[in-house]
Write a protein that binds this DNA or RNA. Structure first.
Lengths: 160, 160
DNA sequence: TTCTCTGCAAACGCTTTGCATTTCA
DNA sequence: TGAAATGCAAAGCGTTTGCAGAGAA
């Protein structure tokens, strides 16, 4: 978790919400369609891997806004379910855009050398989770799961 | 993640390292056996669920030391492999004492209402993890996994 | 004595917040 | 017009660090 984030590679999901959908969703929640929000949403649409507030702020093209505004908007967008927050354990929140109807539940494989992020299709087996919940009498169970390792490029670099 | 941590319940693991082992381990790493370290280790031995730096500091009995010293010592103990750091995603580090030879790899089930923590025996299936690593060409793979839900007590409280 | 540790206070990084002003509906 | 959003600056919070003095080996 050290390299600059511009080097992230990422397997993109196929569906990208259109900007129209996004603004419609904003309207439905009686939130205003401001220039900063449009700019933030555009950044998230372009880079579909987890971005920090600072990265989003730096990537704003054309329209600039205060970093505090980025923080505020991402919290708002998360509340509205338009964005999902991820935590890679380094004390910095990261966000990905969601498509409507998609809860965005998935996991990542993060390179501990260069911070490359790969989106993962695997998940903790649902039947195991259900059994675990039942065993301890817990309800409304969920989980956070992220994988870490050394990516192919970094492994080669070390050998060289 | 809101209740006070004194209410944590926890399934204790059977093996508890003796204080003698701990000081021996310190000596081996040519670290000094100071009063604050002994007090911290005693706190960790008494409460065998994940504790924050602040909680450890508050639980110090008899010997008091600076909060910064607690932070420094837990980092040192982690480097030495005597303690394992956990991250429940609330921005606060938590620590558990390890027994020698045990890497402490396990997971938790945390109540989102009262913060009760249950130690979990389940883990992400190793063969799935290996396949995942191979699929993406990653090596030295590891994972972070924590479960969240509503504990039996809190569910009952809500119904009442 | 020497190297490590500690207390204290200050700094750091991420994030939130109060307030006056601007902007969207 | 009125509610929501923004910029700016300050504060909050967990954590780290610089430095001089204290303590273990």
């Amino acid at each position: 978790m050290k390299g600059p984030c511009s080097q992230h590679t990422h397997r993109h999901r196929l569906i990208q919400p259109s900007l129209t959908d996004l603004t419609a969703q904003l309207r439905r929640n009686s939130r205003k369609i401001t220039a900063s929000r449009q700019a933030i949403l555009n950044v998230l649409r372009r880079h579909q891997h987890p971005l920090t507030n600072r990265e989003i702020h730096a990537a704003l093209a054309g329209f600039e806004c205060d970093l505090a505004t980025v923080y505020r908007n991402l919290n708002t967008l998360e509340e509205m379910g338009m964005v999902r927050r991820f935590d890679f354990g380094d004390g910095v929140a990261r966000f990905e855009l969601l498509t409507e109807g998609d809860d965005g539940h998935h996991h990542h494989l993060v390179c501990t050398r260069c911070s490359t992020v790969v989106e993962i299709e695997d998940c903790f087996p649902a039947e195991l989770e259900a059994a675990l919940a039942a065993r301890h009498g817990f309800t409304q169970i969920s989980h956070k799961l992220e994988f870490f390792g050394v990516c192919p490029e970094c492994r080669v670099q070390k050998l060289a």
